[in-house]
Write a protein that binds this DNA or RNA. Structure first.
Length: 283
DNA sequence: CTGGGGATGGGGCCC
DNA sequence: GGGGCCCCATCCCCA
């Protein structure tokens, strides 16, 4: 098997390659791929709101792509603490945009797959913050007993997780200017942007497509070419996916089963339509 | 209502 | 980094 893409997992839960993204971000100021990119305002639904002293920058409309966020950094403990002393569970996050000296970033936190089982080492300001949480928890332990101690410790852990969650959300930093979709790499964003620009035009009917091979498949609808033949019934198809769907009709076993009536279907769309028709009222 | 074909979209991987 | 290819998914339409 020449290619590995035959193995496909949960398409609805794709995870960006944050390690690769980190590299991208680290070089975003100087690499040729990112030249001409602008730093747009942080979208209000995707990041912390900007302060009045840090008004949003106007977007460069000549630029196709945007970097939504600068490399993330965390405040030094002293900065985060301020004059009044902070709540140790308070999440603080800011970057060079805010005019602050960057502290140790959470370099090891960029791979979300590690998060559930192995947490990255806590360094720099985060370590100080975590220690602050721990000291608070220790105080609670001394005053309130072990159960309260564990609650306080859990609260600190929860805050840490939330902090990392927000941090990771910010990693998907390439935003489409047409629809505000976020992507973890410039290449993925460029690929997506083709769905807006539709650079591939059919010479016969003028219809536009995002990719050359989509146009290729479309042209077959004009020429009638059907290079994909079913080995069972010799029926031919212009698209390999459609041949694959057709092959399921030859299969004795249907892959998709209704949970309500156990009826099986060859395609998930048929199962969905069956369920929507009211067979399974659901729990 | 069901089965199935046609057409297309979009992300991932390899070269 | 881009192109080509593959996959899955989805929508539409018709029998």
């Amino acid at each position: 098997m020449p290619r590995s893409f035959l193995v496909k997992t949960h398409s609805g839960h794709r995870v960006p390659n944050y390690g690769q993204l980190e590299t991208q971000r680290e070089t975003s100021g100087s690499c040729s791929a990112c030249r001409g990119l602008v730093v747009p305002p942080i979208l209000p639904d995707k990041a912390a709101p900007s302060t009045p002293s840090d008004p949003p920058q106007p977007r460069d409309l000549t630029s196709i792509v945007t970097h939504a966020l600068p490399p993330p950094t965390f405040l030094c403990h002293e900065e985060a603490q301020g004059a009044s002393g902070p709540d140790p569970l308070e999440v603080s996050q800011a970057g060079p945009r805010a005019g602050r000296a960057p502290c140790t970033p959470l370099r090891d936190s960029l791979n979300p797959l590690n998060l559930p089982t192995r947490w990255p080492p806590i360094l720099g300001a985060d370590r100080a913050q975590a220690l602050g949480c721990l000291r608070g928890a220790e105080r609670a332990h001394g005053a309130l007993g072990g159960c309260q101690y564990h609650k306080a410790f859990h609260a600190a852990s929860l805050a840490r997780r939330q902090q990392l969650h927000h941090h990771l959300q910010a990693q998907r930093c390439f935003t489409c200017k047409f629809c505000d979709k976020d992507y973890g790499s410039l290449g993925a964003l460029k690929m997506h942007i083709r769905t807006h620009t539709l650079p591939c035009l059919c010479a016969i009917c003028g219809k536009a497509f995002s990719r050359p091979w989509l146009l290729q498949g479309h042209i077959r609808t004009h020429t009638g070419e059907k290079p994909y033949t079913c080995p069972h019934c010799s029926r031919a198809f212009a698209d390999r996916s459609n041949l694959r769907a057709h092959l399921h009709t030859h299969s004795a076993t249907k892959r998709y089963q209704c949970k309500g009536c156990s009826k099986t279907f060859s395609r998930v769309a048929l199962l969905a339509r069956h369920e929507e028709s009211g067979c399974c009222p659901g729990p």
